[in-house]
Write a protein that binds this DNA or RNA. Structure first.
Length: 607
RNA sequence: GUCCCCGUAGUUCAACGGAUAGAACGCUGGUUUCCUAAACCGGUGAUGUGGGUUCGAUUCCCGCCGGGGACACCA
């Protein structure tokens, strides 16, 4: 269904006439005293038309047909056009929304999107550094799917590279089998660190590592078996974490999947002239097509601009991650199979319109170079390439988030602590609840709190990790939103009412006359208006890949609900008002649950 | 050094170039014979600095100050 915002925008566009390419936009008003929606179009058009903005606004309003939706639009300030919705229009929209499976979120033209996120490394524990990519990528995938896009999520795990030389040497010499059985990842981490130390002092150890790496790459059976075992053990860990987080990947190809493509990629880059040799390495240099300061292959020092090439084949002949990323890109753009369980024909390849990489901001230069190389190498490719980057998680001391002893925080342990802290609170607040249920509630609340804390800040901001803040029931947190949902569920339990029974039948927007609803109370009206904005907020998120917009919306919705609930009795209300209020409650609960679900966060029925 | 990001209330975070910069915590005043007070309703208090573009700048451009990050064979 269409949003009120888009209806107003198209009516306004019709009244404004030729805007010379200026988009006619309507936004929800920041302050209710300006009405519900506002547009700046008169001010934007005033200059090119050499008109007085307020005069122009008056002319636009004179042609504008919106009396089915709002009161006569008002002109304010320098030329703002303000819209105030008629209660009848709010009721009609709210009723249609309540009958809509998509809760008023419009369908958009379908695009095919690959989302590459999480990307943990084999033989290493997942740690706090993986949270943002994992949580953000999953939320974007869920939101894109809800909007109707065709999405493939791909976990590009680090399962290939020079570190396996050292791991293989260590596996053969210092591995403790018992320790490996007890704690596989811990033992792999231990032997890697130990071997790394040995290599620092003993050049023969480095040679040994190189030797084992070459054998692995040449297909040596023993090394291949060890590598596969390390991969398997790591995947067990990944699966456990992803299961706790409720995250699913359509693909987990990993870097090793592309290793047979690397030679061809390098050859193509060389023969197409994209890359050339320098100091024994094969490099991509600037092609001077961009202004110097925008060129990802240039860097300036005191003597002027100098080359900052991207290396696609090291002097020793090995490839690096740029090469792997190019191979990955080539497969994803042209030959990514739609399904993994059967061979597919040409028209079953995925061929994405967009590929989204979710990584931290430190990789910006890498992706700028990667995308630039791709454009030069494959100029006919039209796929949109997006690097969705994010800031760091800091400790309360303002430095990168670490344990007290200065180690990286392991993701599994972090989730344990979140659940444990949530369990303590739930036990405190609801001691009568059976322990099994308290555990389950603590799981939903604890995991939700961690995810929400991560999604709430603008993704490009660094943020401070605070257990107390994220698990608080006050303020913009997951527990507060979950509590809002629970409180609504409690109303229906108390009244012995099936929520489905208060919902209008599908298509109810055509028969609003049958609905005796009135939204006489200010709390009712503002809640209904806030519900109508769900469909306006969700599509905006993908424009800049910013799920925090949804967090802020849900928080405002919960606030609107609590205000309504404070001033409007539900179960004790007289009929007509009672059923309208029950529907407001139910719809709020559905939007809260759906909104949280889009962020990858669950809701308990009680807490 | 060059490039990227950041600098907003005591603190932690918001704000498609729009109106009187919005929350939470903190501090502070109030609300419960009533559907979960894990709540609600008030008060307090901020755009680092100097220019520029614009009808309008936290937002865009330039300088300065302060913080973080990236910059040839790690990913």
């Amino acid at each position: 269904m269409e949003t009120i915002q888009s209806i107003l925008a198209s009516r306004l566009a019709a009244a404004a006439g030729d805007t010379g390419g200026i988009a006619v936009t309507v936004q929800s008003a920041q302050d209710t005293r300006f009405g519900d929606y506002q547009s700046n179009i008169a001010m934007q058009l005033a200059k090119p038309r050499r008109a007085n903005p307020r005069q122009l606004a008056m002319e636009i309003i004179a042609k504008l047909q919106v009396d089915d939706l709002c009161e006569t639009p008002e002109i304010a300030g320098a030329g703002f056009i303000n819209f105030r919705l008629k209660p009848a229009a709010v009721i009609a929209h709210f009723t249609a929304l309540a009958a809509d499976d998509h809760l008023g979120v419009p369908s958009v033209p379908q695009r095919r999107i690959v989302i590459d996120f999480s990307s943990p490394n084999v033989a290493k524990p997942m740690h706090v550094g993986h949270i943002r990519s994992t949580v953000l990528g999953d939320a974007l995938a869920r939101i894109a799917r809800f909007l109707g896009h065709d999405v493939i999520t791909d976990n590009h795990i680090g399962d290939w590279g020079t570190q396996f030389g050292m791991l293989l040497v260590a596996w053969k010499t210092i591995l403790n089998k018992d320790a490996l059985d007890r704690d596989p990842i811990g033992e792999l981490e231990r032997i890697y660190k130990a071997q790394n130390e040995l290599c620092k002092t003993d050049p023969r150890q480095l040679d040994a590592a190189r030797g084992e790496l070459v054998k692995l790459q040449d297909g040596n059976e023993e090394n291949d078996a060890i590598w596969k075992e390390m991969r398997r053990l790591s995947q067990v860990q990944f699966d456990e974490i992803y299961s706790r987080l409720g995250i699913h990947f359509d693909r987990t190809y990993g870097e090793s999947f592309y290793r047979y493509m690397l030679r061809d990629v390098v050859n193509e880059l060389y023969h197409s002239g994209t890359a050339r040799e320098s100091d024994g390495a094969l490099c991509v240099f600037s092609d001077d097509s961009l202004p110097e300061r925008d060129d990802p292959f240039l860097i300036k020092d005191e003597n002027g601009w100098k080359p900052a090439p991207a290396i696609v084949r090291k002097a020793d002949g090995a490839s690096n991650y740029t090469t792997t990323d190019l191979a990955t890109l080539k497969l994803r753009v042209g030959f990514l199979p739609r399904t993994t369980d059967k061979p597919c024909t040409t028209d079953e390849f995925f061929r994405p319109d967009e590929i989204i990489y979710v990584t931290d901001g430190r990789q910006q230069l890498h992706f700028r170079q990667l995308f630039a190389i791709w454009r030069r190498w494959q100029p006919e490719s039209t796929a949109k390439l997006s690097h969705v980057w994010f800031g760091s998680i800091m400790g309360e001391d303002g430095k990168p988030f670490k344990t007290r002893s200065g180690d990286t925080v392991k993701l599994g342990e972090l989730l344990d602590e979140a659940e444990e802290r949530a369990f303590t609170t739930v036990t405190e607040k609801s001691p009568e609840m059976p322990e099994a249920e308290r555990r389950e509630v603590a799981r939903i609340v604890g995991i939700g709190a961690v995810k929400y804390a991560d999604l709430l800040p603008n993704r490009q901001s660094d943020y401070v990790f605070s257990w107390d803040k994220m698990l608080s029931f006050q303020g913009n947190t997951a527990p507060y939103l979950q509590y809002s949902y629970v409180r609504i569920r409690s109303i229906f339990r108390k009244g012995g009412i099936d929520p489905a029974s208060v919902r209008p039948a599908a298509g109810a927007e055509h028969s609003t006359a049958n609905n005796a609803a009135t939204l006489a109370e200010p709390g009712e009206l503002s809640l209904a208006k806030k519900l109508a904005q769900f469909g306006e907020v969700v599509p905006m998120i993908l424009d800049d890949h910013r799920p925090n917009l949804l967090c802020n919306y849900l928080y405002e919705l919960a606030g609107a609900f609590h205000s309504f609930f404070e001033s409007c009795p539900v179960l004790k209300a007289v009929e007509s008002a009672r059923s309208t209020r029950l529907l407001l409650c139910d719809t709020t609960a559905r939007v809260l649950a759906k909104g949280l679900d889009l962020l990858g966060i669950g809701v308990p029925e009680r807490m």
